[in-house]
């Protein structure tokens, strides 16, 4: 059984890591302890610190998009208000609830891993993955509507009057709508990409859980993947009101 070296940033853009060559453990400690760590708590603390640093990096990655949003909203508030009415608040709200629920199940999965209940952890991880797929499906329908309505970024922005929201039918087509939808597609697109990566990593952790690698002494990977998933939910918590609810 390969040692489950806790490599913190289990997610996002770097390529898959080559699995650690099985280190011999002649009396070095429990099997999940990597050779270069002295105690399990040192390994756990290192993993958590590494993950928080990775989350810090993700936050700043998204901060660029939020700054972009703030600058363009401060320049063209009317265009943003017009464009925000084109977005479907119901679908956005539903997505928010779906993600919040998946955050709950992820947190409960960590709790059950901590108490060593392997079956419950597996089931909760599967529910979280299901919620993630639900989120992507809702997102797909939203994107289809945008393409039909011609609400596309930059110079592809040619709104089709029939598909526009009733409340804005009589308003003129904004000149900077292209910029809003550029920002909209970048924000929701990059966030959606992180959801997809989240699904991949959670499935990997689910496999390791089914293989029985985790126990009451060693549940760090479940905790780390839950941290990542909570961050993805955190980003959406800000995305939803800022994009969908401009009155």
């Amino acid at each position: 059984m390969s040692t489950a070296t806790t490599d913190a940033p289990t997610a996002s853009l770097e390529e898959a890591q080559p699995d650690a060559a099985p280190q011999d453990h002649g009396g070095h400690g429990p099997k999940f302890l990597a050779h270069h760590f002295d105690t399990p708590v040192q390994q756990f603390d290192a993993a958590k610190l590494g993950m928080w640093l990775f989350l810090a990096q993700e936050l700043l990655f998204f901060s660029g998009l939020f700054v972009l949003y703030s600058v363009y909203r401060s320049w063209y508030p009317a265009d943003f208000s017009w464009a925000s009415h084109q977005l479907n608040r119901f679908m956005g709200g539903a997505n928010t609830i779906v993600l919040l629920f998946s955050s709950l199940t992820a947190a409960l999965a960590v709790r059950s891993a901590q108490v060593g209940d392997r079956k419950k952890t597996g089931m909760l991880l599967l529910v979280t993955i299901a919620c993630a797929f639900a989120f992507l499906v809702i997102k797909y329908f939203e994107y289809v509507h945008k393409f039909e309505a011609g609400l596309l970024p930059g110079d592809r922005f040619h709104p089709v009057a029939a598909h526009l929201a009733a409340s804005t039918r009589d308003l003129p087509i904004p000149q900077h709508g292209g910029s809003f939808f550029g920002i909209y597609f970048m924000m929701t697109g990059v966030h959606g990409l992180h959801v997809i990566i989240g699904i991949g990593v959670m499935f990997w952790i689910w496999l390791r859980n089914q293989r029985g690698e985790f126990s009451e002494q060693f549940w760090t990977p479940v905790d780390l993947v839950a941290l990542y998933w909570h961050l993805v939910d955190l980003i959406w918590i800000y995305l939803f009101p800022l994009l969908y609810l401009i009155d």
Binding site: Q57, F61, G64, L65, P153, G178, G182, I183, V190
Partner: peptide, 24 residues
């Protein structure tokens, strides 16, 4: 850790704008 991600998002935006025209 704190500065490089902003370069990553800037270059991603540049690539997307050049490829698909974002208007930013």
């Amino acid at each position: 850790v704190l500065a490089t991600p902003v370069l990553a998002i800037t270059l991603l935006l540049l690539i997307m704008e050049r490829g698909f025209g974002l208007g930013i």
